[in-house]
Design a protein around this nucleic acid. Structure first.
Lengths: 211, 211
DNA sequence: CCACGCCCGGGACATTGTCCCGGGCGTCCA
DNA sequence: TGGACGCCCGGGACAATGTCCCGGGCGTGG
């Protein structure tokens, strides 16, 4: 019946047992094996061939982040879903950088955990409510820097947008039916207003501002 | 029975109809209303009071990104799930910056779409397989930049460091007792190794790498 | 010895960015 | 109704940037 093979990685046997009991009744999911450390998990994946690894972060020896990193590097088809108590930016983004496809806090409701496993197995990325807030905060926070965005004229905005597509001045000029010299002058005044000296920096500012 | 009230926003009536027919049989979900533009969606949310907004991006007039931005700003309790055909970094990250809690490509299977709606309604963040790859690529890409720095020759490192102080090529040349032309050539090869096209980008890379 | 890579430069070229200049055109205000 | 103001459009002149060639000198290792 093609159940999803899940590998549990957590250093607390009691927690693994609880998790196992929680997931056992779920028809779509099968607990393929358990590991208590990152090293053990890496040693097991080859034989167990799990679809999804439920990974704790705080473990003695190799942490969950390092284990995740090596795991996704050596077994790209295996999806890692982090299941951790750690609710801080450092842990969340370290896990993301390591290649985790999801992050759920311990204490998540059963329906949420099951949904996350199904989603991750389907190739989706999913994050529990608290983590989701951090994620959107990260991106909208980037956008917030735009609040102090200088006022540009219509032409300047237009040209800045084209600049953000890595178009050269002559191309922009041709596309707008202008002289290349005019575009350069507009670009120059854009830089002055953005307080940047450089085309690339202007593009950065624009991208961060959701331009 | 506390169904999830969903507002559909898409400029294609036929697509809305298909989506509506697809979701109607789902017990947990109720189509509260439909809108064909971003403006109309913003006008409707006050009265309709949806829990989740299924938002298209490419629409005449106000696009889905701008609509999402205003929507999450004015109604923070409403979750926006983007449902778009656009599968490119610009669209995805613009939506994230705007505050979207999820992003699923049109053409997603029903089970995936329903799961995404449920997840988003629960406060989670969820992204379809293609989008998930972009997201993890974004973070793991950042990680790669932090460690894997191309090997530069001694001269190149020296020049890159001076570049990072925003010195011009002539100044660098004078400080190193070189010809301006030589510095330019070194700079050019640095760019090639860093895979950047721009002085400013090279500086960014250097700074991120703790240079 | 010699191939290879680094270092040093020049030539030629297109692009970029800066600081000037002036003219046309609409808006708002006295 | 006249004028000030800002935006838009461009040219001139200039310095700097970046690219793709070229060649020579110099050390190191096979």
């Amino acid at each position: 019946m093609d159940q999803i093979r899940v590998l549990l990685v957590d250093d607390h046997p009691a927690f693994r047992a609880g998790l196992s009991a929680l997931l056992k009744p779920v028809r779509e999911i099968a607990i393929a094996d358990e590991a208590s450390t990152g090293e053990q998990a890496l040693a097991l994946v080859g034989g167990v061939q799990p679809d999804v690894v439920l990974m704790d972060l705080a473990m003695p020896g190799m942490g969950g982040v390092a284990a995740t990193e090596r795991l996704v590097r050596d077994h790209p088809h295996i999806r890692v879903l982090v299941l951790s108590m750690a609710d801080d930016d450092d842990s969340v983004f370290a896990a993301l950088r390591a290649g985790a496809r999801g992050y759920v806090l311990k204490g998540a409701r059963k329906v949420e955990l099951v949904r996350s496993i199904l989603a991750v197995h389907g190739g989706e990325a999913i994050f529990g409510p608290a983590i989701a807030s951090r994620l959107t905060g990260y991106f909208t926070g980037l956008a917030r820097r735009e609040q102090g965005f200088p006022e540009l004229t219509a032409r300047e905005r237009e040209i800045l947008i084209l600049m953000s597509s890595h178009l050269t001045n002559p191309v922009i000029a041709e596309r707008l039916g202008l002289s290349g010299k005019t575009v350069r002058n507009h670009v120059s005044s854009i830089f002055a207003k953005l307080h940047v000296a450089d085309r690339a920096e202007a593009i950065m500012r624009a991208r961060e501002s959701g331009f």
